[in-house]
Simulated scan of single mutants.
Amino acid sequence: MSGTSEAAELYSTIEESARLLNVACSRETVWPILSAFGDAFAHPGAVVAFRVATALRHVGELDCRFTTHPDERDPYAFARSNGLTPETEHPIGTLLSDVQKRCSVDSYGIDFGAVGGFKKIYAFFRPDDLQEASRFADLPTMPRSLGENGEFFARHGLDDRVGVLGFDYPSRTVNVYFNDVPAECFASSTIRSTLREIGMAEPSERMLKLGEQAFGLYVTLGWDSPRIERICYAAAATDLTTLPVPVEPEIETFVKSVPYGGEDRKFVYGVALTPHGEYYKLESHYKWKPGAMDFI
């Protein structure tokens, strides 16, 4: 299979990075994913990134995500057939295929953990073909919270700005990523009122400073509640010292431990807010090209 050598190189990078971060990494968990999607790494437009987060549930994990461009292969069916994720009767098991029937998907992304294994699939839409959140709200497999919050999305100018949908199979949640977000959404006063409206924790001054530099945001939805479970604001940088906030010690360790390709390094630094507080995450691009869609 084309891309086998690239997959092997990436596995060695993950293994070494995990060691430096004191994260458990076994070949039995990681290699089957890289091997199954090996052709993705040979694609000239491939994007590969690593991520860590400060939330307790993310401690001891190193996440990796990569793009895979459309072919005749359905990425979720392919993952199941290769034993990467189990069959499920939960609606999330058919949601991606329902989305594919409703609109054209430009490319896909795969997310996995060095410890947790296969986790997510991302469906990317073309930048000139952003989708309307309301277009997906009536899908029987979609969390009802998408429709329940339709007025909220429309009022903030987000309804027609959906650039990516992310399907988290172990957590049984859906992420809705908004691109070309109106600048007003990142003003401190708007962030405060937005978080208050959807029942999130009061933001710290640090969060507000980072939010003012954000380029995009996303919300996390589940099937058990009509409410938005989490909202995340993300800022991009090639030098972390240019960010308006300091980074955590564990994130500094991550930056020193994972390599990057090309002459310039690129980071996406995000702050996620829940009803119980906030946490931070950093994505470091290992392989990317200008103009490629960012993960958040």
Rank of each mutant, 00 (worst) to 15 (best):
T85A: 13
A55M: 08
A7P: 14
T190S: 13
L273D: 03
Y286K: 09
E197H: 00
P143W: 01
R135P: 05
E28N: 09
R19A: 14
Q213K: 08
L282Q: 02
V105T: 08
H285K: 14
T220Q: 00
V99P: 07
H90M: 05
A77I: 10
E61D: 11
G45L: 14
G116F: 12
T68P: 01
A183F: 07
L10A: 13
W31L: 14
F124S: 07
G150A: 10
G93Q: 06
P140T: 15
R57K: 10
G270C: 12
E229F: 01
L208H: 09
G150Q: 07
D111E: 13
P290V: 06
S104A: 15
G270H: 07
E248M: 05
L195A: 01
A236N: 05
S193H: 00
L282W: 07
P226F: 00
H90G: 02
T238H: 15
G277Y: 04
P244R: 12
G262C: 13
G109D: 08
A40I: 10
P140F: 07
K209R: 12
N179I: 03
G116N: 09
G222S: 05
I231K: 00
G222L: 01
G45S: 06
F295Q: 03
S107L: 12
D180V: 09
P127F: 15
E263D: 15
A36N: 14
A79L: 13
P70R: 14
V181A: 04
Q131K: 12
E132L: 11
T190C: 03
D39C: 05
Y279Q: 04
V219I: 03
A8E: 15
G45N: 10
P249N: 07
V30T: 10
F267G: 10
G216K: 01
T194V: 03
T190Y: 01
E263W: 14
V99K: 13
D224W: 02
V23N: 07
L95R: 06
P182F: 02
P170D: 14
V59R: 10
D168F: 05
A7W: 15
S81I: 08
S81F: 06
D138A: 11
G113V: 11
L273S: 12
D160Q: 12
A77T: 15
Q131W: 08
Y279H: 09
R161P: 05
T242W: 11
T13C: 08
L56I: 13
A214E: 02
P91M: 11
P249W: 02
L158K: 10
F66D: 08
W223C: 01
M293T: 06
F37H: 13
C64Q: 09
G199C: 01
F50K: 06
E72D: 15
F78L: 09
F66Q: 06
S2W: 06
P259K: 05
Y279I: 01
